[in-house]
Design a protein around this nucleic acid. Structure first.
Lengths: 195, 195, 195, 195
DNA sequence: CATGAATGAGCTTTCATTCAT
DNA sequence: AATGAATGAAAGCTCATTCAT
């Protein structure tokens, strides 16, 4: 009844595990493309090629399904460290911006924010699965900068990470292009501010 | 003939101007509380105490109504300049964070992002009415810092503004509290980075 | 409040008589094109360039308006008699078929039939204004045939007229073309049957 | 396993076949009583005792539903041939007139004509299901008359059938009663005209 | 387990009509 | 007399969910 993985040891006809993923993939597509409230269970069922009760047997309802789908989203592995902390930071930011600029990347953030009151699990899971890991990557490069002495040991790493990550949100909200140089520009300012 | 007050300039029953605002206020409330796609014209009409045709006479449909409601949103006047650019910047940021933290402040951003594909006018207007003015305030304080020599004359003001504003988005998305000191923390880093 | 002509001697601002016709013309167009229940007072007002209360001042409602519009419909004058009764009959039938085949000619008949239960005035007026005059023309040519001795003096003129006129309805309902020769074919049969 | 009765041939809950008919009957009633555009899906659903989605699962919309309902209408079997072609013809005509004079019989024709432009499928199906079969019955009796030599072998059967059938329409449109003798009167004329 | 059928509530929009100027 | 504004009622259609097989 919830988004945990189906047990495989129970008696009776086993659940078709492949269906789980097919359904969740379709759900994720609809969630990002249409947003949570527009996303239609009917449409997902059709796209996944299953019937609706098949979905309800796995997840208890729309919210459960959507949050389960978020589980699929994985943050890309950070690029390997080069030894140069500032370069690593810029690479991490470029990585981050690319993932936001994927089709409906920002729309997905939008829908979880919009649903905060109605379906808070969405935002909660989104934070755990996506926001936190992404930020962790940025934070680690900053820590590396501290370790190498380029960044002051008592610098406010937390705030710095928010600044960097947030600058992409802000830029997107303004509707202005986010070129590959953007990472350099914002990293430059913050890096200097952390010395 | 010319009995009194404003000569009735156009024929017919005059439109009740008070209704316009009542409707738009209700719309704005529903838009931020429920999000665009959940927002119901029926419910808005009831809350505003008007009939649905009254709304359709003024706005051509749901999208038109929602965008019109966005027009209502006004960015608060920036606090008066104190002469100290850094203090002014911090005050502007506190202002900004307070407006985001108002009930459903972020949800409104969310719905606008979520609808980008379906109802792009929303995001467009949101940018013009809210995003741009807010950012302008921050930018002006940065400019003042340049004028006073505290900030380098060739500093990347645009990026700095995005960093500062965005840090609130990022912090909110993380789900962590945004205290009044937050403005100090992020302003401190960026200010130093712009020297 | 009803479809009678407006008096011109009453005090106060006189009614704009030209509007009456403009409104009725538009009504008739909508009535035949969309049918009675689809015909929209809003749309008629717009097409006629008047406001709705202007219409309600003249006619008491939709049904009154529609029946008033039917009043406009006039049956074309019969072609002049040639002296040959059979030829005159055929000419009358061709005339009749042409008027039916005008755009929405049959649709108008359809809508008055369809509304018989709901708006019986429509059918009543339609009968008086259109059905009866048209049939009268046909009947007169048959009477002329009697006078000239070509038709038996105790022939069932009434039934014959119905046969002839009705054959066009039946043909139309079948969806088959009604060429100009059709009048000849049906007149031929009936004429012979009346000898 | 194979408990009883027809082995369930297709998976899933079987469709309740009784509902189909209940819905279509109600639809037909509403279609003839109110006409196509007045006929309301809501009202039909209530009368049939089903929910609207149940209807939309079966038919794609209002037009589809209405045309499906027309399918229900069956032309009454012609009375058995007596051997006397003229008598058979008169019996067929009486049959025909009785079916027209059933409540809303003509209103149904009316709505179908009125909707020709908007919902042409209605008229198309009506022609196939009702108009053509009815006319076929009349035509067959005329053919029988030819076979027995009472009617000329090169008589215009088609036109004759239209005359006879149409005379009822015309008579109805005039608003005059159609007694049982009416069939005799029109058949008399045409029969003679075909000799 | 998985299916197709069924449901109740809700949506946006339009209509015929009346009111206030 | 004529206008533009306002209304209550209803329409067609879709959704998330549950039932019966």
């Amino acid at each position: 009844m919830n988004s945990s993985s189906p047990k495989s040891t129970s008696p009776g006809r086993p659940r078709d595990a492949a269906l789980d993923e097919k359904i969740l993939r379709a759900t994720l597509r609809h969630l990002s493309e249409y947003g949570y409230s527009r996303m239609s269970i009917d449409a997902i069922a059709e796209e996944a090629g299953v019937s609706k009760p098949t979905m309800y047997r796995r997840w208890s309802g729309k919210a459960d399904l959507a949050t389960a789908a978020l589980t699929l989203v994985r943050v890309a592995e950070p690029p390997p460290a080069t030894g140069n902390a500032l370069d690593d930071l810029k690479a991490a930011l470029r990585n981050f911006s690319r993932s936001l600029l994927r089709p409906n990347g920002m729309a997905l953030i939008g829908t979880v924010l919009a649903e905060e009151e109605h379906t808070p699990e969405l935002l909660k899971l989104f934070r755990e699965r996506l926001v936190a890991p992404r930020r962790a990557i940025v934070r680690e490069t900053l820590r590396a900068g501290q370790a190498s002495g380029e960044i002051s040991s008592n610098a406010d790493i937390e705030a710095a990470a928010n600044l960097l990550v947030g600058s992409f949100y802000a830029r997107y909200l303004e509707g202005l292009p986010i070129g590959d140089d953007w990472a350099d520009r914002v990293a430059g300012i913050v890096w200097k501010g952390l010395r």
